[in-house]
Write a protein that binds this DNA or RNA. Structure first.
Lengths: 125, 125
DNA sequence: CCTAGTGTACTATGTAACTAATACACCAAT
DNA sequence: ATTGGTGTATTAGTTACATAGTACACTAGG
């Protein structure tokens, strides 16, 4: 499974985002072992050094814990999941509002645009 | 006025975004002359080449028109403004929805989050 | 003990993006 | 014609990123 990566963002960061998403969605459980840097590198079709950078970034955030000789594990702290989701959600919404106001939209227009987009998507099913 | 730029995105692109925003908001009128590459460079505290890249990108989009020896001007086509706003708005909303669904949120939760954020901001005033 | 698998560290290389500095080409006004 | 202001082109330097290769440290299991 050789994935595709966007060129606008570093690969190591995109992989980190994916892991966090999977954790927040419950697809990765607290304390679960992640693939080794070498194995994850093969899965993702990148260099092991890139994965190490990914794990290092996640460890700096406190999301994973690396144990030499054993592997890299998702954090045991279950409250981290809700906290992560809350923080990420806040950042996403804040950036969205800022972008929309940047093109001159008022609050009611912003809310309306979201509703319309979701309704339209529903119709496309 | 030496502005601050994010490191995650090229400066020339951030300046281009700002110009488009000003145009969409009506702060820059169709056909209006923009500052020269050198003057804009001084205003923004960057190299003239960075501004040239900004103008080049905008010209490629058809938003501005550069005339050698005269200057760079906003497009005369007034319909470009609405088209730009519509396109940008669609991209912003689409990216927002994708991000929110990425952390496992359903459509109703997404709409609710936007409403809550706007209500909270209103209270902060 | 020994081996395999793990994370970690280090150097080197290549590439691309961004920024910078400089020189050149054009236009308008004097 | 000259001058000043304009866009344009070329070249170079810096940085971040990704890759490659190698070596080391630790752990678990046989």
């Amino acid at each position: 499974m050789t994935e595709e990566f966007k060129t606008s963002k570093p690969i190591y960061s995109q992989i980190a985002d994916r892991i966090i998403q999977q954790f927040v969605r419950g697809e990765i459980r607290p304390g679960e072992k992640l693939p080794s840097v070498r194995e994850m590198a093969i899965q993702s079709g990148v260099n092991p050094n890139t994965i190490q950078r990914t794990y290092g970034e996640l460890e700096r955030m406190g999301v994973v814990e690396s144990r030499r000789g054993q592997g890299t594990f998702m954090t045991e702290q279950i409250e981290m999941r809700n906290q992560l989701r809350a923080d990420i959600q806040r950042d996403i919404v804040a950036a969205f509002i800022e972008n929309m106001r940047g093109i001159g939209l008022e609050d009611r227009e912003i809310a309306y645009a979201v509703e319309q987009f979701l309704v339209k998507r529903e119709e496309d099913k």
